[in-house]
Write a protein that binds this DNA or RNA. Structure first.
Length: 1031
RNA sequence: GCGGGAAUGGCGGAAUGGUAGACGCGCUGGUCUCAAACACCUGUGACUUCACGGUCGUGCGAGUUCGAGUCUCGCUUCCCGCACCA
């Protein structure tokens, strides 16, 4: 019987739903396993074939684990707050909830179509009030806690208040704002309620602060750093400016060290961990104060990771943005400094980054005193120093730092060596740490390891500096001036924010008349009637920072997740998603998780033990080539005129260079005939050339490009009209009155003959292209080709060129999984995606190989049938059949465990090919094979499983157990090597002794030939593997 | 510049230090067919040889080893991430 996925697949999907096959309970005697996909944002474009790659992988793993006896949690949901829905709402006035709902319905349909084993009863949506109630609840917890450095965890702010009332803030070691003053208990107690609340904000883990943010006026929103690429918004490419705004901020920096440490405990891809380490950017060093000459109350504080180089300081540099720069500038330099500040402010980020080689800067005229040696060094301002990092000032050590060196060279500042190992300081700085210090007072003669603690100790004793650890990580801005997000559960009393009471949650997103900011620039929530709460909403990462817990207990109305559910599922065992979330979602969710763990609300410091990044599936774009006028000229030359000249003898042509001043495109000197190629629409041009021809006494022939388009595949027709023109005595010849063709598209396979500038390259929808050949019937129905003609190659085909690009609508290379499923079936689609290559690799989508997988499924199916009848026998299997089966069990089991899904598919193909050549149709072999296939092709497996007489789902069929005995063979085919090179093969008994094997190998004629009568130096025998004779 | 990863036929890709190129696509030839598609069978790294066979071959150059795609060292190229981060 024929394998017809379109019949069996919908049938089983319905059956699975009706039988609640994928419903998971939070209990049981089985061990648990939690497989999680990064949930998608439901965009209007729907899923393309790249999205399911990770879902298929996790689905295979989930089904496999279930068959291995685990209770598997494999949920799916939607990260359904986000910018695109809101943009759409602004344009159309439609509420984002409605479009989001529609998009989710589409996603659901597409996901269902692929046969995933998701437990849909556990679906979550971040935009659901029942869900974001708990996002808001967590926000309130963050507001009500501070980070205590002694406890090394978050503690309630109420504890802090007690401390303050008793002994001020001196005794509390906690993470707080840099500008937090020391207060005594009496100071605290003397404060008003307002003053106390404002003071506490300096400690709360989330708090409103004045922050420089990435403000995007076009989107009316604040963007996070990772939403900004090259100075413009990642979405839409709108300009982004730095703006100081009142924003809710998350004190993620409190967790910097723990987020860094935690990376060592989890099995995540090295590249993700490295990106997070970079982002956190821990640097250990020291901060030092340099006194400024003439300002008793002023000093320049710098942070350095190389305090050991302090004796090499020959100047100091401040970031131009620093207010201090203006303060210390002498009158003499004021004009230059102000000019420079203006100039740098006007330069865009991109300019600054692309122009990093050239050092720019101006002196302030002020001098600092190096505390180490008392030397007087000039203070400059320069834009190579960033205001946002450290104190915005550096001590410049040109001998040890390349940027300082560049600057010193540019402005002729001294370069003092500080280590005996430093060389070639004329050509570059030497940042090496090997060697002994010179010119370095206190630390002369020391090594790096000795010098650093010595200097720090000295600084601390003198009270001019201290050891300090600095992080690149900034506190995370948590406000968005947008509508479609979680309302922040806070209200304001004057300038003091108060969190809502938990019992007032959820704070439901109110209705508004428009989704735009107000005329006064306030966020859209200001439009809501009677809204007396915070106006900004939460960013996209809020809801996605804890969703993995909600899946454990999705309908709980009393807690975000019950203790029991948490106790049962613990954490995510396997997490899969794209690497683009490396520092967004994956860092923030680790932060929230650490916090929740401090509160004893979740069992582990890290929520996901293992993480895998699936590679991106890139689009494979196709291109067509539209002819320009120049193409027809070259075409005339190559196809028509050249053969013609060969016939009637050479005719000189001029005007082939197409320069502006040349009047004619083609001129036949000897015949006084000018041939003009132009569009029928170019009436003016024809008239102009006609006049010139008349004046010159030449005859003119006009060939319309449209006419050439009509006859492009018949050069003889065109040659005939030229022949006729030559013979005629007419002055002005137009060969065709009404050409029909509008545009010509030239097959890519013919373009090598023509100059590249004769055609325009245009994206063509990949869905009307098959194996790079354009489907002309389908093409003619599209607008692009409505009035087109095609120049086809010798086989009558139009070939397109191709390129690998990102899969996107604008590139017309989006492939919808539904189309593949409709054509080949969901099982084939699933297995083909796996077969493309290792899941972690990026690869272009190319359906070329899909027939191989489709053929495999048909062959697999046919093993169970004889003609139209299902026929499986109860006969005992042979050794060969058992070996094929158990080889497959071994390979597939091993390969799923190591996430090598592509080779699993190969093993199924091999087993099927082997068993088919053995004509095996025995239940004892085929039934275990169906179980093995079930995670990959669940529909076909379920169908065959039921045909085999089972009533319950194949999902619960126990994974077959490997019996190593069946893998053994009586004889082994040994490769015989001479000096490591293969020379012969020898069939030997599997249990042969080393001596016998050696003897047998040496007995071979070919081995004797290579030995040339000598005795071998050595014979290497690896049992079951190979024999190597060393000559 | 720093960090991470990769490089194997015409293509996607396989190979616990042990027969390089599994499996699939594509291509050759054949069977079936009036024909095509499907299906089935055969061959398929390069060079060389009538043939048996031989030589070369996993980006380049060394090394370790009886034996290297795999391990070590030095390069080249490409991809990804970070980037005047003091």
């Amino acid at each position: 019987m024929e394998y017809r996925p379109s019949d069996i697949e919908p049938k089983w999907r319905k059956w699975w739903t009706e039988n609640s096959t994928y419903k998971t309970k939070n209990q049981g005697d089985k061990p648990k396993y939690y497989v999680l996909d990064m949930f998608p944002y439901p965009s209007g474009a729907g899923l393309h074939v790249g999205h399911p790659l990770g879902y298929i992988t996790s689905d295979i793993l989930a089904r496999y684990k279930r068959q291995c006896g685990f209770n598997v949690l494999h949920p799916m949901g939607y990260d359904s707050f986000g910018l695109p829905a809101e943009q759409y709402a602004i344009q159309t006035g439609q509420h984002p909830a409605i479009t989001t709902e529609q998009n989710i319905a589409r996603y659901r349909e597409q996901l269902e179509n692929i046969g995933f084993s998701f437990d849909w009863d556990r679906e979550v949506r971040t935009s659901d009030a029942a869900y974001y109630k708990w996002t808001q609840w967590i926000f309130i917890q963050l507001f009500n806690h501070y980070y205590d450095l002694d406890a090394d965890k978050a503690l309630p702010v109420s504890e802090l208040v007690k401390h303050f009332a008793q002994s001020g803030n001196a005794a509390v070691r906690a993470v707080c704002d840099d500008d937090t003053p020391n207060i005594s208990a009496s100071d605290w107690n003397a404060m008003s309620e307002r003053e106390q609340q404002l003071f506490l904000l300096k400690y709360r883990i989330t708090f409103p602060g004045e922050e420089y943010v990435n403000w995007c006026p076009a989107l009316g929103s604040v963007l996070s750093n990772d939403e900004v690429k090259d100075g413009v918004s990642e979405r839409g490419g709108h300009p982004v400016e730095r703006k100081l705004m009142k924003q809710w901020v998350m004190r993620i920096t409190a967790y910097a060290d723990r987020l860094l440490e935690g990376l060592n405990t989890i099995d995540w891809p090295e590249s993700i961990k490295e990106q997070q380490r970079n982002w956190i950017g821990k640097s250990v060093g020291a901060s030092v104060k340099f006194a400024v000459e003439g300002f008793d109350d002023l000093s320049v504080e710098v942070f350095t990771t190389r305090i050991d180089t302090i004796y090499g300081v020959t100047f100091m540099v401040l970031a131009p943005e620093l207010d201090l720069a203006k303060t210390i500038t002498t009158d003499e330099h004021r004009n230059a400094v102000e000019g420079y500040i203006k100039w740098t402010a006007a330069r865009s980020e991109i300019e600054r980054m692309s122009d990093t080689k050239k050092a720019t800067g101006v002196p302030t005229g002020a001098y600092a005193i190096n505390p180490a040696n008392g030397e007087r060094v000039p203070i400059w301002i320069a834009d190579y120093v960033l205001a946002g990092y450290g104190t915005g000032a550096v001590m410049a050590v040109p001998s040890g730092d390349q940027r300082d060196w560049n600057f010193a060279k540019e402005f002729n500042l001294p370069i003092v060596p500080i280590m005996d190992s430093q060389q070639d300081l004329d050509t570059a700085a030497d940042a090496g740490k090997d060697g002994r210090y010179i010119n370095s007072g206190l630390i002369n003669g020391m090594t790096y390891a000795e010098a650093v603690p010595t200097m720090i100790k000295w600084l601390e004793e003198k009270g001019i500096g201290r050891g300090k650890t600095q992080y690149k990580l900034r506190n995370a801005v948590f406000s968005r001036q947008r509508y479609w997000g979680e309302p922040v559960p806070a209200r304001w009393e004057g300038d003091v924010p108060y969190a809502l009471d938990e019992k007032d949650l959820p704070l439901v997103l109110p209705a508004v008349d428009k989704y735009l900011p107000t005329e006064t620039g306030e966020p859209p929530l200001a439009r809501a009637k009677g809204w007396k709460y915070e106006l900004s909403t939460m960013p996209g990462w809020a809801g996605s920072s804890w969703y993995f817990y909600r899946y454990m207990d999705p309908h709980n109305t009393g807690e975000f997740c019950s203790k029991e559910a948490m106790q049962y599922w613990q954490k995510v065992d396997f997490y899969i998603g794209g690497s683009e979330h490396a520092v967004g979602h994956l860092l923030y969710s680790r932060f929230w998780n650490q916090f929740l763990h401090d509160l004893g609300l979740v069992p582990h410091r890290e929520f996901a033990q293992k993480l895998v990044n699936q590679g991106m599936i890139q689009g494979r774009s196709n291109f067509v080539y539209r002819a320009k006028e120049r193409f027809f000229e070259e075409y005339l030359m190559i196809k028509v005129l050249k053969p013609f000249f060969e016939e009637v003898g050479p005719i000189e042509i001029k005007g082939a260079e197409f320069e502006e001043e040349i009047k004619y495109d083609f001129a036949f000197e000897t015949n006084d005939l000018v041939i003009e190629v132009t569009s029928i629409k170019q009436v003016d041009k024809i008239e102009r050339i006609r006049k010139s021809a008349l004046e010159d006494g030449k005859r003119l022939m006009v060939l319309y490009t449209e006419e050439l388009t009509d006859h492009i595949n018949e050069p003889a027709v065109i040659a005939e009209s030229i022949r006729a023109a030559l013979a005629s005595r007419e002055d002005f010849i137009v060969t065709s009155k009404q050409p029909s063709g509008e545009q010509l598209f030239v097959s890519h396979s013919l373009l090598y003959k023509y100059s590249p500038e004769t055609v325009t390259k245009i994206h063509v929808d990949v869905n009307i292209v098959d194996n790079d050949v354009l489907d002309l019937d389908k093409a003619r129905k599209t607008a692009l080709f409505a009035n087109a003609n095609f120049k086809l190659d010798a086989e009558g085909k139009y070939t397109c060129s191709w390129e690998v690009e990102k899969m996107s609508k604008s590139k017309f290379n989006v492939v919808n999984p539904d189309d593949i499923v409709a054509e080949h079936g969901a099982d084939c689609f699933r297995m083909f995606e796996m077969f493309l290559g290792p899941i972690t690799d990026a690869k272009p989508w190319n359906t070329k190989g899909i027939t191989g997988v489709s053929g495999f499924l048909r062959k697999f199916w046919s093993m169970f049938f004889e003609g139209e009848n299902f026929r499986v026998t109860e006969e005992a299997p042979t050794r060969d059949e058992l070996r094929a089966l158990h080889t497959c069990i071994k390979k597939v089991t091993d390969d799923i465990e190591r996430m090598s899904m592509n080779t699993c598919v190969s093993h199924f193909m091999i087993a099927t090919n082997d068993l088919r050549s053995l004509k095996c149709n025995k239940r004892a072999v085929l039934e275990p094979l169906v179980i093995l296939l079930a995670p990959f092709g669940p529909h076909v497996a379920e169908e065959l499983w039921h045909l085999l007489g089972h009533q319950t789902t194949v999902c619960d069929a126990a994974w077959p157990v490997l019996n190593e005995e069946y893998l053994k063979t009586d004889t082994v085919n040994y490769p015989i090597q001479i000096n490591g090179k293969l020379r012969a093969n020898l069939e030997l008994p599997a249990d042969i002794s080393a001596q016998d094997a050696e003897k047998a190998a040496l007995g071979l004629e070919i081995v004797q030939k290579w030995l040339e009568g000598n005795t071998p130096k050595k014979v290497v025998f690896v049992p079951g593997r190979m024999i190597n004779v060393v000559v």
